[in-house]
Write a protein that binds this DNA or RNA. Structure first.
Length: 227
DNA sequence: AGACGGATTGCCT
DNA sequence: GGCAATCCGTCTA
C-alpha cells in the first residue's frame, strides 16, 4: 500500500476566503454537493473567540435512499431536510451524540449532506474544552467524526432548521479557498446498514482529521479507480 | 402500548 | 476486536 501524503499544516485563512457561500452551490444533487462542500468552512460565532473549521469529510443522503432519514417521507423530525438548501438538520445518534446535516437540492427534495469531519482552523481551545479532551490530545481528534465535530462546534438540536447561509447566524457555512481542494476521494458511507454499496462518502485523502477505520486512507471498497 | 435499533464513541479485554 | 451507554422515531400488535 502506498504511503500517505502528509497533509499541510493548518494555515490561518485570509479574510477574502471567508466569502459567503452562494446558495446555488447547494442546489445540486446531494452527491455533488457533498463533494463541493469539502474545503468549505464552518464558523461558530457563539463563543468568546471565533471557532472555525474546514470541512474534510461528508456523506450524501437523499429521499430515494434507504439509508436516509428522509426515505420514509416528510416527518416533523426530518422537516429541515425537506426545506430549502442551507438549513441545518440535527439528529441524535445512538441516544448520545448530535450530528449535523446541511439540506441541499430544491425545497421538498429531502436531500442533505452529513458533516463527518472537520479540520480545526481557529478557536481550538474552545473546541478542546467542549470536547473535554486533555491538552495533550492532538488537534486532529477535536472534530473527527460526526458526533465529535458537533460537540466541538457547539451544535445541539436547537440548531435544527437554522439557516447556515445566514451571515449573521450563530453557526455559518462560508466558502473556503476558491479552488477546490486536492485529493478528493469517495467511498462507502460509514455506519449504515442499508444501501451500503453506494459510495457517497467524500473525504480528503490522507487528512488526519478524517474519520473512519483508517483516517482517510483508501478504504477497501473505496472505488476501483484508485490504485 | 411496547419493542427495536440506529448516519457513534470510547473504554474494555 | 467487543461492547456498553442512552434517546426517540418508527414499526408492530
Amino acid at each position: 500500500m502506498a504511503k500517505l501524503p502528509q497533509h499541510a499544516p493548518t494555515q490561518p485563512l485570509a479574510a477574502s476566503q471567508h466569502a459567503p457561500m452562494p446558495a446555488a452551490l447547494l442546489r445540486g444533487e446531494a452527491r455533488r454537493v457533498a463533494r463541493r462542500l469539502l474545503g468549505a468552512l464552518l464558523v461558530d460565532a457563539t463563543a468568546e473567540e471565533s471557532v472555525v473549521a474546514r470541512i474534510v469529510e461528508t456523506e450524501a443522503y437523499s429521499a430515494r435512499d434507504p439509508a436516509s432519514h428522509s426515505y420514509r417521507g416528510r416527518t416533523p423530525r426530518t422537516e429541515a431536510m425537506f426545506g430549502r438548501a442551507g438549513l441545518a438538520y440535527v439528529y441524535r445518534s445512538y441516544g448520545l451524540h448530535w450530528c449535523i446535516n446541511v439540506s441541499c437540492g430544491e425545497e421538498g427534495d429531502g436531500a442533505a449532506v452529513l458533516l463527518r469531519a472537520l479540520e480545526p482552523i481557529a478557536g481550538l481551545a474552545v473546541m478542546q474544552r467542549r470536547r473535554a479532551l486533555p491538552a495533550s490530545a492532538p488537534p486532529a481528534r477535536l472534530c473527527r467524526g460526526p458526533g465529535n465535530l458537533a460537540q466541538a462546534m457547539g451544535v445541539t438540536l436547537a440548531y435544527t432548521g437554522l439557516d447556515l447561509l445566514d451571515p449573521a447566524g450563530p453557526l455559518r457555512m462560508v466558502r473556503g479557498a476558491t479552488q477546490p481542494p486536492a485529493g478528493v476521494r469517495c467511498g462507502p458511507r460509514v455506519g449504515i446498514t442499508r444501501a451500503v454499496d453506494k459510495a457517497w462518502r467524500y473525504y480528503l485523502a490522507g487528512n488526519a482529521n478524517v474519520s473512519g477505520p483508517r483516517n482517510g486512507v483508501a478504504l477497501s471498497l473505496a472505488g476501483r479507480s484508485e490504485a
